[in-house]
Amino acid sequence: MELYASGFNAWNQLHFDHHSNTASPPPEKTEPDDIHAFTCVLRDEVIDHVRPFLSYTLVNSRPMGLRSAGMIPKGREEAALRIRTAGDDEIPTNFVEASNGIVVAYDNATNSITQHPSIHDPISNTDNKTSFSLPQGQAITQLVSYSTGFAALSTSGQVYTWGAADERYAACLGREVDPQNPATVPSHVPDLADLPTGPTRKLSAGGYTLAALTAGNDLYIWGQPSPASASKSSPTILADYLTDRPTPVDINNKDIADIAIGDDHLLALTTDNELYVVGDNSSGQLGFPPDTKSFIGEWTLVHIPGVEQGGKSIAAVVAGPRNSFVIVRSNDTYRFGRKEKVNKSLN
């Protein structure tokens, strides 16, 4: 399989050292440039986890194992290991961090979500923690964070949303806020229950936008434009979808296989293996040169020559805050029936 990437690369977080497991240090005094087209950055037999952060990227691939690129802040991974409460994965996936530093982790042993004011908060400090228990039989399979809050998906396809100690930006909750369902407590999103094409199977979130993908490959989006970029906002197709209620999104009438959301950009993979992008491209995160297109207002088809010519197909899309990743498999692998777990769920 191959990992293609495009966009923000200020810490060389798109440059994997092919020969060692350690991230390559930036060369002296030269500023690493961004990558403005989807480019192959990593190859291995199986690539099954990609977790992009602002300054670094973690990838789990086989047989090479855990790979990292960019700059990992000192102590951060240790803190992450401490805060995660379960799971043997090399990359902890059962915790997420919002832009205001608040972190939540899911403990499937106790079926509870724990919220910490910061990733560096001592795990033993119970004063600062908040715990939310979930209804019986509703284990969490996915946690995502947006700028000021979180969303969680349960085994039965229920979606919960809440603000990280913040009642602002209520549109990102996609639900009513009332005394029974306060903004800052996980509460389910009724509009995502009983959808025509089945329950939600995947969530994605970034910036102030959230998305749910149903079992029947329909895409629903909710949220609001980023308040920080409101002044330079260009007209975007997203303005039609972005409300305080989950709204179905149509991309050329196609079924949607995967969705990924960055700070201010979206990637959608269709079931017929086409990649559509929309939003901010100022770092090249949509795979176009930013000097010609710094912002893309409508769903736009991206061609990746290496993928199309090689008879390969896209297995999954992943978005970092300001960059994008596409996991590619050769169709041979697919024919042999080796099934990769992509964006593997938590348990």
């Binding site: 961004d34 700028s147 913040d166 920080a228």
Partner: peptide
């Protein structure tokens, strides 16, 4: 050009925090 881009990046990253925090 890259220097100006990176400074813009830094400014927009900091600026978005002004909204993410109370």
């Amino acid at each position: 050009l890259l220097l100006v881009k990176r400074l813009d990046d830094l400014m927009s990253m900091a600026y978005s925090k002004f909204y993410a925090y109370l």
